[in-house]
Design a protein around this nucleic acid. Structure first.
Length: 837
RNA sequence: GCGAGAGUGGCGGAAUUGGCAGACGCGCUGGAUUUAGGAUCCAGUGGGGCGACCCGUGGGGGUUCAAGUCCCCCCUCUCGCACCA
């Protein structure tokens, strides 16, 4: 009584047999297809939300394999990082041990899901034979002047006890632990990603298949802005203030200057202006609120008059210089010209200020007069109150004013970016040591390449100290070394690298994972990269994806690779929610796949995950609906199992016997439905949108039709004639098209149908285009846009014939009686609309 | 505030170029089979009305023979950016 697909045994069987299915021969036949999922952090357990990523990737790899591609689908572990360390501290075991245990567990989860990879290429970023090459990459950057050490104000997370890159700070908090970030002055290592700001921005145009929002986020982050630096001399002439502005056309309306309170010049100016005591208090006040409430400070516009004046180079007028909380030190020059009439922030500042600062309008909206402003006018218009530039269009004036200031040596065109250099040092244990040595005599010296890897010591107290130094500083065995240059006593750099360095190049390593001579094989990498399809979460829109693009561009410029973008196509799947919120351990709303697989089997879990909704969108998990997928799986199984007698012949005879012109109506209907389904499934998945959900629903429709077809078919019951052949053909196509989504079931039926080779060596069917459309269809007949009747008609009728049929329709007569027919619109294949009044 | 996306039955979601709104699935209702079933199969299932019909895709206008789809205004939600000069 095998009414149910016996998944318990069969899924195990196929998981074992598939051992080498995804083993990639890099020189094998077929066009290459590098299908890559973002490698996970081995946190121990994957829930069904994570599963979506891997199931989409696996189904894609399988269907591409069935298209004849040579598939490279590797997997590895982003295995350095804080959680391992924290867990190790908590459980008193070594991070390496904790990591290994988790990897074992997660590998089993992939296996249970039927998610396949070429495990012979497995890598783990925490292993010396991997991080040796991460260190090598660091040295390449260092040699090229793109890795440098600098004492700077950096983001310090007091809870994680390490510094963070700007990208890892979200709203002033640590993206990992959500604690407020402090500012510390520390000597740190940086990668000069800013040198690539323009290339990263420009080459976005090559990333046509990337989601628009990811590109928008990256370009926001890079924050390129073209403008002018204008020199405002101080009144007494011994110093200049440089203002960055993108609106130099408003310079005649600049009636004051604002300097960031943290600006190094601030203290000098208040001294000079005779306001030292009060001014110092103000600077301290701003610093305090910045520390406590960064959010709030953003909306107050407190200022302090320094007592100094500058000269507006356009108007030659004396204008006051203020310190204020609303000017950012980090952007531009930290000095801004205040134009209250045309900048809302400056307008508000003037309103809040007790001093009487003039508001001078210098641009008027075309077609209206200048009048009293209730807010800043930021639009374009005609220049007024601007001397020789009056009457010009402001955009035009912008150029002319720039030229005129440039001639006088008072202005320069500049480009500013919000992107800052990538801070890569971390004061934590579980990461790749930075391969540098500090020697009293020779200074900072790189570790020679042949001395790599700089091994992470095992016998070290890795509890973070929180004093701004790495735990490695407490390991004398690690710390003390000799200088590679002079041979004298020296000390190793004790920081480790940001784990995003590890993940910025791992996709190169998969091509030659065991190579002991080099980081990656240039020939293989040039042949297999860029990645054809990269799949992962949107949360890496900036971090990982921007860093990887940077590193590849660097390697390209060094001549080490021949491609300058790592990922040709990017797909970011939506997250799975439960009770409306993202599924996560911390939210306590995870669904463990283990229990579901035990109850329904992997094919069901896979099918449901793919059916849940469009993959790029978030989707709410519903345990109830999983049963629907289970039912479908069993419906397909029964379709085979109840009629297994049909498949007793050897498979060689079961194909190519169909002759559509000789089919009866019901047979032809089914035949056409099969063609339509083949077309739709392939289209929906392979057009780049990965719409498995609609592909699956098409397969459900076809399955329903097959049931209807065989139900009342005497020939089929008697096992004679075309109906039997057609049934075989129908089921075979369902099995092949469903195989990428629910591989165990399909592989099993395929085998029982008598095939010795795996179903994944089978090519996808081609739709018989002649039969994509039905030969008859239901013509909708409307009167004045409302549906009044329907009539089944032949496909290839002329407009005139269709019109006649519609007008002759009995039910229509009632509606057009006594009316004048103004117009009849015929849409062949769909409807007729009769306009009658 | 700016930018992007979204709003369709009780629920998840379908709907080339404007052309039968609600495919497919969940849930629900009825029936068949069954000792029984939370299994399976069949039928029904947007709302209103006995009915012919009427109303329905966040709200309001518009274009059109025809609008979920195009245009204008507004509301709500999600995401990103946010004193970036």
């Amino acid at each position: 009584m095998e009414d149910f697909y016996p998944f318990q045994d069969l899924e195990k069987k196929w998981q074992e047999r598939w051992g080498n299915l995804f083993r990639c021969d890099l020189d094998g036949a077929g066009e290459k297809y590098y299908c890559l999922m973002m490698f996970p952090y081995p946190s121990g357990n994957l829930h069904v939300g994570h599963g979506r990523n891997y199931i989409i990737g696996d189904a894609l790899a399988r269907i591409k394999m069935m298209e004849g591609y040579n598939i490279l689908a590797p997997m590895g572990w982003d295995s350095f990082g804080l959680p391992a360390e924290n867990a190790a501290i908590k459980n008193n075991i070594k991070p390496s041990r904790w990591t290994e245990d988790n990897i074992r567990n997660m590998k089993k989860q992939f296996y249970d899901w039927g998610v396949l990879y070429d495990w012979s290429r497995e890598i783990a970023s925490c292993q010396p034979d991997y991080y040796r090459w991460t260190q090598w990459l660091f040295l390449q950057l260092y040699e090229s002047g793109l890795a440098y050490q600098e004492k700077a104000s950096v983001n310090w997370c007091p809870s994680c006890k390490t510094v963070l890159a700007n990208e890892q700070v979200v709203n002033g908090s640590c993206e990992r632990c959500k604690n407020l970030i402090e500012s510390k002055k520390l000597k740190q290592w940086f990668f000069r990603i800013t040198a690539y700001a323009d290339k990263l921005l420009q080459d976005q145009e090559k990333l046509e298949k990337w989601p628009e929002r990811v590109l928008v986020m990256q370009s926001n982050w890079i924050g390129r802005s073209e403008g002018i630096e204008v020199t405002f001399p101080l009144e007494d002439g011994d110093r200049n203030l440089n203002c960055f502005t993108t609106r130099v056309d408003t310079i005649f309306g600049a009636t004051f200057i604002v300097i960031a309170a943290e600006h190094p010049l601030a203290s000098e100016l208040i001294k000079k202006g005779g306001e030292e005591r009060e001014g110092t208090l103000f600077i301290e006040h701003v610093r305090q609120i910045m520390l406590q409430e960064r959010e709030k400070v953003a909306f107050t516009k407190e200022g302090f008059f320094t007592g100094c004046y500058a000269i507006n180079p356009a108007t030659k007028k004396k204008i006051p210089v203020f310190l204020a909380s609303y000017v950012l030190m980090e952007y531009g020059t930290g000095v801004v010209m205040g134009v209250p009439a045309h900048d809302q922030r400056d307008f508000e500042f003037v309103e809040e200020s007790p001093l009487d600062i003039p508001v001078i309008q210098v641009i008027r909206e075309e077609g209206s007069e200048a009048g009293d402003l209730t807010e800043a006018y930021v639009g374009d218009g005609i220049m007024i109150n601007s001397g020789e530039f009056d009457g010009l269009q402001n955009r035009e004036a912008m150029e002319k004013i720039t030229d005129s200031l440039k001639e006088r040596g008072l202005a320069e065109r500049v480009v500013h970016y919000r992107l800052k250099d990538w801070l890569i040092s971390r004061q934590r244990y579980w990461g790749a040591p930075i391969p540098m040595i500090h020697c009293a005599a020779c200074g900072t010296v790189p570790v020679p390449e042949d001395q790599l890897p700089v091994l992470l010591p095992e016998d070290v107290d890795f509890i973070p100290r929180g004093d701004g130094k790495s735990p490695l500083a407490a390991s004398p065995g690690f710390l003390n070394t000799v200088c590679p240059r002079c041979g004298g006593k020296a000390q190793r750099d004790t920081d480790t690298m940001d784990t995003f360095v590890d993940s910025s190049w791992y996709f190169l390593r998969y091509l030659s994972p065991r190579d002991t001579e080099k980081a990656f094989d240039r020939e293989l990498v040039n042949r297999w990269l860029p990645v054809d399809q990269y799949i992962g979460g949107i949360e890496h829109a900036i971090l990982h994806l921007l860093y990887s693009r940077f590193i590849i561009k660097f390697l390209y410029d060094k001549g080490l690779v021949e491609f300058n973008e790592p990922f040709a196509n990017l797909f970011t799947q939506g997250m799975i929610t439960r009770n409306g919120v993202k599924m996560s351990k911390s939210a306590g709303n995870t669904v463990n796949p283990g229990g579901l697989i035990e109850k329904y089997g992997a094919d069901t879990v896979r099918l449901y995950t793919l059916f849940i909704g469009p993959p790029e969108k978030d989707a709410e998990w519903n345990d109830r609906s999983v049963e629907g997928a289970y039912r479908f799986i069993n419906r397909v199984w029964r379709l085979y199992f109840r009629h297994r007698d049909i498949f007793s012949e050897p498979p060689g005879t079961d194909e190519g016997k169909l002759d559509p012109p000789r089919m009866d109506k019901a047979q032809l209907n089914l035949y056409r439905k099969i063609q339509k389904t083949i077309f739709k499934v392939k289209h929906d998945i392979l057009d780049g949108s990965f719409h498995f959900n609609t592909a699956i629903s098409a397969l459900m429709e076809l399955t329903n039709e097959i049931y209807l077809f065989i139900e009342n078919n005497q020939d089929f019951e008697d096992r004679v004639g075309t109906s039997v052949e057609l049934f075989k053909y129908a089921l075979r196509n369902v099995i092949i098209l469903l195989a990428p989504m629910s591989p165990h079931l399909c592989e099993e039926i395929w085998e029982r149908m008598g095939h010795a080779e795996t179903i994944f060596s089978r090519r996808l069917p081609e739709a018989d285009e002649e039969y994509l459309e039905a030969d008859r269809y239901t013509l909708v007949i409307q009167v004045n846009g409302k549906i009044r009747s329907r009539e089944e008609i032949e496909q290839d009728l002329s407009d005139e014939e269709i019109k006649e049929i519609a007008l002759a329709n009995e039910r229509i007569a009632d509606f057009i009686q006594g009316k004048e027919i103004k117009k009849v619109i015929v849409v062949p294949g769909r409807l007729v609309n009769i306009v009658a009044v």
